[in-house]
């Protein structure tokens, strides 16, 4: 057993476990988007789950930290919050904020984090940068909304887990990056239509299954 302190609270857990998981289980909220507990190494791309760990220089993403006994963690420092707010502002500047017509409305992590971090959904100081197309068809049976997508990679990793190899991939670079589809595998056991795990796991409903 390892005992760590998070924001002064003492937590008993197994050594080697993922710090973000441990915090979330103990009702200590840390903003995050791309984290999937079973994924090793962690994707660590959203850069939201920053915390400060005593003895480490500067904030570190908590999803990349393994718990060790005696670890002292702070989740609510000025530097951590500042990084989280900036990251969220960046996300929102590349996100079409149309909550009313969005199927993720009220279950959207962006809304939740904006509320928690007190960040306005429409930023005043960053100009929005959206992609040209609002909607793309992903073969064979999905609709993809590039301007909703937060590129957390959950769909890719889930697909790889289910099918052994991901049928989805990141495409393009930099600000133009999107999620794209290779097309179905020949003779697959479960078709994409039956599976649709990628759509289910998407936190912002950027992938939707088209039925009928």
């Amino acid at each position: 057993m390892a005992i760590i302190t998070v924001d002064g609270l003492s937590i008993e857990t197994e050594p080697g476990r993922n710090l973000l998981s441990v915090c979330l289980e103990n009702d200590i909220y840390i903003p995050h988007l791309c984290f999937m507990e079973w994924l090793d190494p962690p994707h660590a791309s959203c850069r939201l789950c920053y915390v400060e760990v005593e003895g480490k220089a500067g904030p570190v993403p908590s999803c990349t930290v393994s718990v060790a006994s005696g670890m002292a963690v702070k989740t609510d420092t000025v530097e951590v919050r500042s990084l989280q707010r900036t990251a969220l502002k960046f996300f929102l500047s590349a996100h079409k904020v149309e909550c009313k017509v969005c199927p993720a409305n009220r279950q959207c992590p962006l809304q939740e984090m904006a509320k928690f971090l007190k960040v306005p959904l429409k930023s005043k100081d960053l100009n929005p940068r959206l992609k040209e197309k609002d909607l793309e068809a992903l073969q064979p049976c999905f609709e993809y909304y590039p301007n909703r997508c937060v590129l957390c990679g959950k769909c890719l990793h889930t697909c790889e887990r289910v099918k052994g190899q991901s049928l989805l991939t990141f495409a393009g670079r930099g600000i133009d990056m999107t999620v794209s589809f290779y097309g179905g595998l020949p003779n697959e056991e479960i078709s994409c239509e039956e599976c649709a795990e990628c759509a289910a796991v998407c936190p912002v409903k950027a992938i939707l299954l088209v039925t009928g």
Partner: peptide, 14 residues
């Protein structure tokens, strides 16, 4: 930028 992480993908654009 490869586009993976938020700060580099969106931040450098701004």
């Amino acid at each position: 930028s490869c586009g993976k992480c938020t700060f580099c993908r969106i931040g450098t654009h701004h």
